[in-house]
Design a protein around this nucleic acid. Structure first.
Length: 333
DNA sequence: AATCCGGGGTT
DNA sequence: AACCCAGGATT
């Protein structure tokens, strides 16, 4: 591996990212949790306001799950922030600062092998492999590895290789340079191999098969759901919301919705539970795509005439925007 | 080892 | 519309 060329490339070409202007392990940790499955550009504004509001782990530990969910609304995978708050409380309870040993970092809720390696190498400059999607792409091309990297065993092998490399590199620079190279040069499509600092010994480039790597098994098809979604107003013109308890979007608020294709079925189901609604008009159809699901939502405006579900809460229309709500419903107008 | 967790981007 | 991207926890 041309580590010297790679690190030199990084030092003169990397983006100036707000969360890389520090080696405060707390801030590195926050950024790495946000960056899980999420693009840099998406994370930046969230990180900025988050650190302004929660400059220290002590300040973060004092907040509550619902406030935190609202702070990160739109980032997705909200469970990671549930774990983030649990971890912050653990750290503050122990009163020994942000952990600095690999095993202690790895033991934090929501921190796996990648995130622990990223924190150790970027914040503490210690040689621990951080194998994310970018690094997998760069190394699989450089070494021409045809393994399916959705298979855990293959990731583990590559992680071992990366561990050996980082032990003779400058960890803080090395980890960031591989990720930056993956984002800017060694991109999934149209990689800029001509200007890549690793092109001299990149096997995939030599064979011109760089775009076929890395091999990733196809994900299974998404499951589709049809919902009747209600913008339901009570007599005081307040709107009915429900706080989700399901593991999907847990703790986020939503308009009441029912798995059905027919508003008439929903009306009769509600009536058999003592709830009477008067449908005013059909609004729009919405589609929302998750990783494993697609929601087709038929939205109706309705008036609540009688009864209510125990899980419902009445909210002033203007207050909706203050509550954490998934994009799937936030986009309903 | 397989499945569950969002959301945004590109083609 | 169809494709791409991708860590951690749970089971």
């Amino acid at each position: 591996m041309d580590i010297k060329k790679l690190e030199a490339w990084y030092e003169s070409n990397h983006r100036k990212l707000l969360f890389r202007e520090t080696s405060d392990p707390y801030k590195i940790w926050v950024s790495e949790i946000m960056l899980q499955q999420t693009q840099v550009e998406t994370v930046l504004p969230f990180f900025k306001s988050f650190i302004k509001k929660y400059p220290t782990v002590e300040r973060l530990a004092k907040t509550d799950q619902e406030t935190l969910k609202k702070d990160v609304e739109g980032l997705g995978y909200y469970r990671r922030f549930k774990y983030m708050l649990l971890a912050a409380k653990q750290i503050v309870d122990k009163n020994s600062g942000f952990p600095s040993k690999y095993q202690d970092v790895l033991a934090l809720p929501g921190v796996g092998k990648y995130t622990a390696g990223a924190i150790m190498s970027i914040a503490y400059n210690e040689p621990y492999s951080a194998l994310d999607g970018n690094v997998i792409r760069v190394l699989s091309r450089y070494l021409n590895l045809n393994d399916d990297f959705r298979v855990e065993k293959n990731k583990k092998n590559l992680d071992q290789i990366n561990q050996e490399i980082i032990e003779s590199a400058r960890p803080r620079i090395y980890t960031q340079s591989l990720m930056e190279l993956g984002a800017l040069i060694c991109r999934p499509k149209n990689p800029k191999c001509e200007i890549c600092p690793l092109n001299e010994h990149c096997i995939a480039y030599e064979l011109n098969i760089q775009e076929t790597l890395p091999v990733m098994a196809k994900l299974k098809d998404k499951k589709e759901f049809n919902y009747i979604t209600l913008k339901l107003y009570d007599k005081n013109d307040q709107i009915v919301l429900r706080k989700r308890t399901e593991s999907l979007l847990e703790g986020m608020y939503e308009y009441p919705q029912f798995e059905s294709e027919s508003i008439f079925d929903v009306i009769s189901t509600l009536e058999s539970n003592g709830v009477v609604i008067d449908v005013i008009n059909k609004e729009m159809n919405y589609k929302h795509i998750f990783t494993h699901q697609i929601w087709y939502m038929k939205v109706f405006e309705a008036r609540l005439l009688k009864g209510k579900d125990l899980s419902w809460m009445m909210v002033d229309k203007e207050k909706i925007k203050q509550l954490p709500m998934a994009v799937a419903h936030r986009k309903i107008k």
